[in-house]
Write a protein that binds this DNA or RNA. Sequence first.
DNA 1: ATGAAAGCGCTAACAA
DNA 2: TTGTTAGCGCTTTCAT
Lengths: 334, 334
Amino acid sequence: MRTITIADVAKHSNVSKSTVSQYLNKRYEYMGEGTKTRIEEAIKLLGYRPNIVARSLKQKSTTTIGVIVANILHTFSTQVIRAIEDICHDYDFHTIVCNADDDPEKEKKYIEMLQAKQVDGIIIFPTGGNVELFLSLKENDFPLVFMDRYMSEVQVPSVVLDNEKASKLAVDYFVDRGYQRIGIMTTSILENLTTRIKRVGGYRQALQEQNIPINENYIKSLELHQFEDAMTNMLSLKNPPQAILAGNDLALMEILKFTKKKKISIPKDLALIGIDDVSFASFYNPGLTTVAQPAFEMGKKAAELLLNKIQKKEEDVHHHIYSFEPQLIKRESC
Amino acid sequence: MRTITIADVAKHSNVSKSTVSQYLNKRYEYMGEGTKTRIEEAIKLLGYRPNIVARSLKQKSTTTIGVIVANILHTFSTQVIRAIEDICHDYDFHTIVCNADDDPEKEKKYIEMLQAKQVDGIIIFPTGGNVELFLSLKENDFPLVFMDRYMSEVQVPSVVLDNEKASKLAVDYFVDRGYQRIGIMTTSILENLTTRIKRVGGYRQALQEQNIPINENYIKSLELHQFEDAMTNMLSLKNPPQAILAGNDLALMEILKFTKKKKISIPKDLALIGIDDVSFASFYNPGLTTVAQPAFEMGKKAAELLLNKIQKKEEDVHHHIYSFEPQLIKRESC
DNA sequence: ATGAAAGCGCTAACAA
DNA sequence: TTGTTAGCGCTTTCAT
């Protein structure tokens, strides 16, 4: 498949390469009608398609952004990705998605790869492990937006859930429904993830405000494969929790596997609320009460912040953290 | 952020650009130790990163492939995407994912965009609507692999499930469990999708082999929003189906929403099997019997076919359809 | 209203 | 063992 270039089109329409280039970039101002149609025809005739790589090299812009998610297995990540892609599509931008697996090394590798590919900016769920790298990106004014988590050491526009409120909504609802012994289970791979910290923090604070003593045995931050043992232990305490807040979708699923296996009835034996609105929440038996994140809105915001920055419309000077409201969706599990 | 080029590195290490290029491409054969370390140091010192765009322009290869899925909402699509990304990662290739929404127009647009971006090949879930385009791609020897569906008009390596067998597994299992009035519900957007045709075909054939008469009222191919009405109708027939095969994950979820809403008990009032192993199958109440597709294997195969073709290792001359085995996973819903 | 020419950052003959 | 040179396909002054 010999590549057809602008030069071929130029030859076929008896104009110079620059004129064709003008045409391609829709600068018709000073262009004769005849030239225009001749170019048009030549393009169709030859089946010419502009080479974006060459254009990118010249223009130093690829109209492509990178998205690095922490863990693609979370529903939330995929929802955010779709929102970002939607917005990018509106702006005629493209997206390269990478999954850092919550590993700072991989994160670094992907950032470098994306830069080598000359992406115009990056939206990232930061692991928190590459402070230096992010500082230098910021230093160089490289367009960057954080999603889901922020890094206090790095002042970059960050789109996050109001995680404290998310926990509070759940705890308050549990208490409303008469539950007092309330636990929380979150997943843990990395220390110092703002998301988890805030969710657990919000949980503690909500309990305090309700004048319920905090029982450290009810607070678990574990790998998924440890959930089964942990739940077995928790539920065999003399005063086992009556209700559990699942910190995210994967935690919720792990809990559901356990309750099914052990024939624990929800909410009779154990009430449940999950953060993240999982696909099956509405038709699970029993229906699952969840705290939904406005994932689409958040992805949209992140994309807009980044694209505006790329197109020099700045505006991100004042704010640094864009916090979104969680929403409690009541169903039978609580 | 002034870009640092190979020329800067060359200057700092007192060699020519080509020598630096040799170094970058690990052609150390004829390179003096001193030169090598000087270049190494200059690179580190300057924080040089090769510009992949420039390299791609020169080499006429972007080490990037495109993946166009029919509908990103299907679990199967996301599983396949992950597999493809995994394999690409091993080969140092990158991936651009597009969602054609089962719309031939969008499909065409994405193919053209990916070609403009100079991807080295495409894996696609074809809508079936762009025969001409695919023929011309094949004509031009552009690396192409079909996934999930094939087009009899276009001889391109195709990775598919043995869809007839998938239905047969389900029907036979229903019959084993004593069900005779068995329905099938699939989603429909496009006509002539090989996947749906084969699933319905396999269902019919399996019934015939079991000497069960085929009732056309039990066979529905509909948009998701029509499922509720269709089910209401079906279940109010004088002889309503006792069991339903859901043609894919979205169909299954629609059915589950309905049964929950109408308090229809599974499997007592209605037995259920779904094609596609949904995340919640194991811990749903009741556990859902499913026919799982080996999504990871299939994605892997597609990626390998494509990458081998790109790297001229051909080998795809004989086979054109790579058919994978579905697997019945038995749980309480049937 | 259109064209000539330089150059984006890199690679690959070919020379030296 | 290393350097010179000519592009890859496009955009963009600056002439004309």
